[in-house]
Design a binder for these strands. Structure first.
Lengths: 154, 154
DNA sequence: TTGCAGATGGTACTTTGTGTCAATTGGTTA
DNA sequence: TAACCAATTGACACAAAGTACCATCTGCAA
């Protein structure tokens, strides 16, 4: 693990405490474990992937809690809910503005960090009547694995 | 309905025939009806919404066929699978490059046409190893209805 | 007109996500 | 540091979204 990654995880743990205190939420072991697990990963796991991964280490962790907690985290802005081509939610601990590329074949999502793709300015309100909060660019393409192995699915 | 809309629907029907012939797919009444229904709508319906709408007019249409056909259409590039905040697929008959705004509260998806948001150029391959096919910008915000009625869901 | 590959409909099933509620626990207060 | 209570959790049942399977049907090419 790089130093930057270690620092990122520490920052997220700090942010968890700050945000929970600010929102009057309890700091439970489940919440700590979930955020830690998500912060350590660089793929963008689904709720069930996180559940499978944590079930082993966090004894008695329930699937309901995983879904509920991730939703809570997304609501308080601690993590991002990332939409992929496949119809299931994926989550990302990195809430800074960055973009994603999603594999049309297996659905894997990776970061795509390139300030050249940032938009100039963002109107607060659009002619359509929507109030605009934020944006994200989702690229579609073929991941390295699927370029070689066309039978791969995830 | 505007003339432009009528022309769009006619173009899509033409495109359906061309693409099916090119791919060796049959031109079934179900496929015609589905594409027509999707092309006429300007919201971005889910598979089940299309199923509900067509069940009445296309007798005996099965839910399985709707899911299967939409997937097929997306694969041959006849329609787009649009990702929204909610974990369900939405579909769009307009395959030209344009962007979407999705309501964080009710999940509604609308078009956001503004060439000012287009990206300069697109590298074929990115350092991440992904082969890039295309991109779409998804704005998040609050739709006009939800700005007024915070209990509204769809 | 016929044959058949491909498409459909129906059912059962899996996956993804939500509602409910009793039992538990974090965190505050005394 | 003990006790209380609202918030959280786990377990189960349920709903919603999507897929697998297979017998039947049909578009379309010969």
């Amino acid at each position: 693990m790089t130093d930057a990654k270690r620092a990122f995880i520490a920052r997220k743990e700090q942010e968890l405490e700050t945000l929970c205190r600010a929102q009057g939420l309890s700091l439970t072991p489940q919440r700590r474990a979930l955020l830690d697990a998500l912060a350590r990963r660089k793929d963008h796991p689904t709720a069930d992937q996180l559940y499978d991964a944590l079930q082993k280490t966090v004894k008695g962790l329930s699937r309901t809690t995983v879904y509920r907690t991730l939703e809570t985290f997304a609501n308080i802005g601690l993590i991002l809910k990332v939409s992929s081509q496949q119809a299931k939610a994926r989550f990302d601990a990195d809430t800074s503005r960055h973009h994603h590329i999603s594999c049309v074949q297996c659905g894997a999502v990776a970061d795509l960090i390139d300030p050249g793709f940032d938009l100039p300015e963002l109107p607060d309100k659009h002619p359509s009547g929507f109030r605009i909060y934020d944006y994200a660019i989702t690229f579609t393409g073929l991941c390295p694995r699927c370029q070689q192995d066309s039978s791969h699915t995830a």
